[in-house]
């Protein structure tokens, strides 16, 4: 029983991190139909920003997690410039395939650029403790504050984001652009600005995910985002890409699958199981769990 509970908590915690990252993927994919492979590396950018700013914050007498605000800013800037410098020119000229390859290239560029910067380098850096230790004991299992905070924050972010896309003007513009780009131009929506805003919000979410990730696994390295990002993308596809509650659901499913596989089957097969779930879902229901099947127009 205690193993089960422990695994459940680990899965929920992992799942909420995946969900946060998947939200960013799903927003960007929904609006420009592009798998932003670089999204995982925005987590890395956020992670390193925090590594370098946490000591500054602490020396200023502020709590360490305040540096996440700075990380959100940096990530949003990186995300917006990626869109402006790399994706937009390619999207204008090429096909969706060239855009996808560009995304892979940007991801490689960010990872390796970080390694080439001497202050960062290829060796992992260890982050200082962000949240206070301790927690609640439930049936021989400690549910620590970090876990609870992670799950809580990700749910809050999702609810806020959902309300944002439903209620606000920018949110409605986003939904409009993702549905029909040319029609939204006719409605007087500035499509390019909306896309840049989407990138900024999505990348900012990556920074929050980075905070949660570091709070749990206090190690930052240049390729930390690639596998995390891939699994988060799997989560987004699983829940139905472009749908915000879908990303959340997919994230929790992936997190639970991973933690249960790790503790009950084999830790080295966890990644294989995650992808197996994706393959099965895509074959049975290609639009994802919450997605709607749409007919193809000739």
């Amino acid at each position: 029983m205690s193993t089960f509970l422990q695994t459940l908590f680990v899965g929920l915690r992992l799942g909420s991190i995946y969900a946060l990252v998947a939200l960013g993927y799903t927003m960007v994919y929904g609006i420009i139909r592009l798998i932003n492979f670089a999204h995982g590396d925005f987590i890395m950018v956020g992670g390193y920003t925090m590594i370098f700013t946490i000591p500054v914050m602490i020396s200023l007498g502020l709590p360490g997690w305040v540096s996440v605000l700075l990380a959100i800013l940096v990530c949003a800037l990186v995300g917006m410039s990626t869109e402006l410098i790399a994706y937009r020119p390619v999207r204008k000229k090429g096909t969706s395939m060239t855009a996808l390859i560009t995304a892979i290239a940007v991801s490689l560029l960010l990872e390796n650029l970080a390694q080439a910067i001497p202050q960062i380098g290829p060796n992992p850096k260890v982050a200082s403790k962000i949240f206070a230790a301790g927690g609640v004991r439930i049936a021989d299992v400690t549910l620590d504050w970090t876990t609870m905070l992670t799950i809580f924050i990700s749910i809050v972010v999702m609810v806020v984001l959902y309300q944002f896309t439903q209620k606000t003007k920018i949110g409605r513009a986003m939904r409009c652009v993702s549905e029909d780009k040319s029609a939204s131009i006719l409605m007087g929506i500035n499509v390019n600005r909306t896309i840049v805003t989407t990138f900024a919000i999505g990348s900012g979410l990556a920074a929050i995910a980075a905070l949660m990730y570091i709070a749990q696994y206090p190690k930052v390295y240049t390729t930390m985002g690639s596998m995390l990002g891939l699994k988060a993308f799997v989560a987004a596809v699983l829940g139905g890409i472009g749908i915000i509650p879908g990303a959340m659901l997919g994230g929790f499913v992936i997190g639970l699958v991973e933690s249960f596989t790790t503790s009950y089957v084999s830790s080295s097969m966890a990644d294989a199981f995650v992808f197996l779930i994706l393959i099965i879902v895509l074959i049975i229901k290609p639009a994802g769990i919450l997605g709607k099947n749409m007919g193809e127009k000739v």
């Binding site: 994919y29 139909r33 592009l34 798998i35 969706s96 395939m97 996808l100 891939l230 993308f233 799997v234 596809v237 084999s266 080295s268 097969m269 990644d271 294989a272 992808f275 197996l276 994706l278 393959i279 895509l282 074959i283 290609p286």
Partner: peptide, 27 residues
């Protein structure tokens, strides 16, 4: 199974298969 999907989905699913193959060989 994979080629029933198109474009981005195919890319991600082939990526998954590539990883699964490597994972299985590893085990």
């Amino acid at each position: 199974p994979a080629l029933r999907l198109k474009g981005d989905y195919l890319a991600i699913i082939t990526l998954g298969f590539g990883m699964i193959i490597v994972n299985i060989i590893n085990n």
